[in-house]
Design a protein around this nucleic acid. Structure first.
Length: 368
DNA sequence: AAGGCGGGGTT
DNA sequence: AACCCAGCCTT
C-alpha cells in the first residue's frame, strides 16, 4: 500500500488545524510528571531511557530516586556502575543503565559536559536510537525532529488508516517522514509530547476512547470504523521455558555465596545465587547442581533441603528455578565476582528480580 | 530481517 | 495467556 496511500492521506489533511487541536488539548490535559518540571537535557534524556518499553507509573519512583542520587551529568559520570545498577534494580533492560552512563561519560569527556544539540552527534551515543534522539532534541532543545515510538505508530496508523505492519522498520521510517511533514515546526516539543500523551491516554491499544478524542475529526480510522483493527502488528513468538536449579550456599559463618554475572548478555553485571540449567527431577537436579559448582567454582558442597520454587517470565524466556540450601564443605577464598557475604552486605548488590525473590525468602527465614 | 534483552500492568 | 509498554543493539 505504501507510498501512494501515504501521499493521498496527506493531501487531504489539515496540518495546521490538527496541530492546534492536538497542542491545545495537550497543554490543558497533560499529566503532571516529574520529568516535565525542569526539562534539562540530562533529565529529559534520563526519562526517555527509563521509559523505553516501560510504563510511566513504573518509571516515576525510579526517576525520582535516580535524579536524587545522581543530580547531574557529572555526578552520574563519576558514579560506580554497581551503584547505578542498584538504582535500576527491578526496572529491567539493564543495558539501558550501563549504556546511559557510558554515553554520559562521553558527554563529560568529549563534549565538555554539554549534550550535543544535533541529531547525528546525539544518536551516535550508546543507547540512543532514532526515537530517543528525536525525543530529546525536540523536548529539551525544541528542534523540529520527529520522535516515533509505539504511541506515535498507533496514533498515526489510525489517523491515516494505514494498515502496514508497524513492527517493521520500513514502516517506522515511513511514519517518521509523515510526522516530519505534519508536525508543528514552531512547537515540536508540545507536538511530539502531545501525540504520545494522546496515545497513552486516549488512543489506547484496546478500546480507544474516540468520543473524547480532541483530533477525532481528523481521524480516518474513526471515520471508517477501523479504530479497533488498527494498527496492524505481527505477533511475537512464544517464550521458551528453561528449568534451573539454584543453590543458597552457606559457609561456617552463615554467609551466603553470590556470583556476578558476565558483563555481556542477559542481566549483565548483576549478581545471583549460583545456578545452572538442569532437569526437573529432585534428586537428579541436586546432583547436577553439586557437580556444576564443583566444575565451575572448584568448591565442594552438600546439597540439603528444597527452599522454594521461583517462576520468572522474561519476554523471550521463562525460568522455573528450584532453590536448594547447600553447605560449604571445603575452605574457600573469595575472588572477584564470587564471594561470601553477610545479610547486611548482600543488600548492597544489584540482583535481578528472580534472584531477589530468593533473597527475600531466605532473609524472611533468618528473621523467623 | 530477526532475535536478544526485563518486568509488570491490562484485557 | 496474549498483548503492550515514550526501543536499542547485535547478528
Amino acid at each position: 500500500m505504501a507510498q501512494e496511500h501515504y501521499a493521498n492521506a496527506l493531501t487531504s489533511f489539515d496540518h495546521v488545524s490538527f496541530q492546534e487541536d492536538l497542542i491545545t488539548w495537550f497543554l490543558a490535559e497533560q499529566r503532571d510528571l516529574p520529568w516535565r518540571k525542569d526539562q534539562t537535557p540530562y533529565k529529559v534524556w534520563l526519562s526517555e531511557i527509563m521509559l523505553q518499553q516501560t510504563r510511566v507509573d513504573t518509571v516515576i519512583p525510579y526517576f525520582n530516586r535516580f535524579v536524587s542520587s545522581f543530580p547531574t551529568l557529572e555526578a552520574l559520570a563519576q558514579a560506580d556502575e554497581q551503584d547505578v545498577l542498584k538504582h535500576w534494580e527491578g526496572l529491567g533492560y539493564y543495558s539501558r543503565a550501563r549504556n546511559f552512563q557510558s554515553a554520559v561519560r562521553e558527554i563529560v569527556s568529549t563534549y565538555g559536559g554539554n549534550v550535543p544539540a544535533d541529531k547525528k552527534s546525539f544518536q551516535a551515543l550508546k543507547g540512543v536510537g532514532p526515537y530517543t534522539a528525536g525525543a530529546v532534541l525536540s523536548i529539551a532543545f525544541n528542534k523540529a525532529e520527529p520522535a516515533v515510538d509505539g504511541n506515535v505508530l498507533r496514533v498515526f496508523s489510525r489517523l491515516f488508516a494505514i494498515a502496514d505492519d508497524i513492527a517493521e522498520e520500513k514502516t517506522r521510517k515511513a511514519f517518521e517522514a509523515v510526522v516530519a511533514t505534519v508536525m508543528d515546526k514552531e512547537r515540536p516539543s508540545e507536538f511530539n509530547q502531545g501525540v504520545m500523551e494522546l496515545g497513552a491516554i486516549v488512543c489506547t491499544p484496546k478500546k480507544p476512547t474516540c468520543l473524547i478524542c480532541p483530533v477525532r475529526a481528523h481521524c480516518q480510522a474513526y471515520a471508517t470504523g477501523q479504530e479497533d483493527v488498527l494498527p496492524v502488528k505481527k505477533k511475537k513468538k512464544k517464550a521458551k521455558e528453561k528449568h534451573m536449579t539454584a543453590l543458597v550456599i552457606t559457609d561456617e559463618n552463615g554467609d551466603w555465596l553470590i556470583h556476578k554475572r558476565p558483563s555481556q548478555g542477559l542481566l549483565a553485571n548483576l549478581w545471583e545465587f549460583p545456578n545452572c540449567e538442569t532437569v526437573n527431577r529432585a534428586q537428579l537436579q541436586k546432583d547436577q547442581a553439586m557437580h556444576w559448582v564443583e566444575e565451575e567454582y572448584h568448591i565442594h558442597v552438600e546439597v540439603n533441603e528444597h527452599l522454594l520454587s521461583v517462576k520468572h517470565a522474561f519476554s523471550h524466556l521463562v525460568w522455573n528455578i528450584d532453590v536448594f540450601h547447600a553447605s560449604l564443605q571445603t575452605p574457600f577464598e573469595g575472588r572477584e565476582g564470587l564471594q561470601f557475604v553477610s545479610e547486611e552486605e548482600i543488600l548492597q548488590y544489584p540482583f535481578s528480580v528472580s534472584h531477589q525473590k530468593i533473597l527475600h525468602h531466605i532473609i524472611e527465614g533468618e528473621r523467623a
